[in-house]
Design a protein around this nucleic acid. Structure first.
Lengths: 198, 198
DNA sequence: GTCTATAGGAAGATAGAC
DNA sequence: GTCTATCTTCCTATAGAC
């Protein structure tokens, strides 16, 4: 087995942990299974991380970064406001559909962090980053399309983050049926109304 | 220790499990801690339930029933539509504020069920019941206030359930700050708009 | 029906050879 | 840096006396 700098090993182990946790769930993912997924022995794990908790901290910050990127890339300015909002949600939900386990994992990690004493700040940070991602998107749309908002930006950002979160979890549990497309239409129309210039 | 019918013992153990899981989280709640919480010995547990999974199944169906009751009781017809919607959300979120751990538990149980082979139907049933609760509420409001809906009932019900879910989780993680009250105002206005007669 | 005692296994973490 | 082997702890589940 190659000898790598420990920063690189940590990265490898973190990515392996994300794959294992997305596949098996957080509680069932053991240090052994993570080491196996990364193709290293258990001792390498404990050489790179002091504890399982330290690894999970790394997993949470890493996956939150991934997720925020998805949201940020989903919404890009298009011809009309409706089109922009609709295409943005569509792109985001296409990602959820393609990687349901990874999105599921973000919820599990939130709950792990909230239950683990001393980790609560990681859960808060996760949700603050979601809201910040929306804040950036809104500002971006405001500049490119000259919107007049009906509600303050922080309120809208937090509301959109919560709505995205709820619809995502709902999809992960129930999947899509006829009512699902309707939900997306409803939220699209609502968001367009909230940010419409008038 | 008194000798009770096993149905009653099962109920006691289920309630004890809900308390223990709300306090410690699902993965940390052991059969031992549940038995201790119920004030019985470990063997009594295995006398009433074949396995921990069987108990968790009982926990999920029980707590979903509790939760649905909360949603159903939250919204009662009041003078105006806005008042009804606002007071309903307020009552619901007052319950969340008063029992955050119990609501947190509903999310943990959903994920437990989705990860446990053969338990997926319990998670689906949980979310179907949420939507059904909203369906009943909408029908009730329609009759008492003569509403004309802008979207079909199943779509609206699922959308409201997802939104409630997202806002609840968002509150459980971030708590309330200035933006929180704004989110509630926004959702209230939106819902009132969706069901307004016009 | 209820108890004590224990089987049997899997987890996180460590020791020490190479 | 990486490995095998092991320590310690805690879990679910069962056996069998009362």
């Amino acid at each position: 087995m190659a000898r790598l700098p420990s920063a690189e090993r940590r990265r490898q182990l973190t990515e392996a942990a994300i794959r294992a946790m997305a596949r098996d769930g957080v509680p069932r993912t053991t240090t052994r299974s993570i080491a196996a997924e990364a193709g290293v022995s258990l001792s390498v794990f404990h050489y790179c991380f002091d504890s399982k908790q330290q690894l999970i901290e790394s997993v949470i910050t890493t996956i939150t970064g991934h997720y925020v990127s998805v949201v940020k890339e989903a919404i890009r300015p298009r011809a009309t406001l409706e089109e922009t909002v609709r295409a943005g949600f569509q792109a985001y939900f296409d990602h959820v559909r393609a990687h349901p386990d990874e999105h599921m994992l973000t919820y599990e990690l939130t709950q792990y962090a909230l239950r683990q004493p001393g980790f609560e700040h990681l859960a808060r940070r996760q949700y603050e980053l979601y809201a910040e991602a929306y804040t950036e998107l809104i500002d971006q749309l405001r500049q490119s399309m000259g919107l007049r908002l009906h509600v303050p930006v922080p309120v809208l950002a937090r509301y959109l983050a919560a709505m995205t979160d709820g619809l995502t979890l709902n999809y992960l549990v129930l999947g899509d049926d006829p009512a699902w497309a309707g939900s997306l239409d409803t939220v699209t129309a609502h968001v367009a109304g909230l940010v419409r210039e008038n």
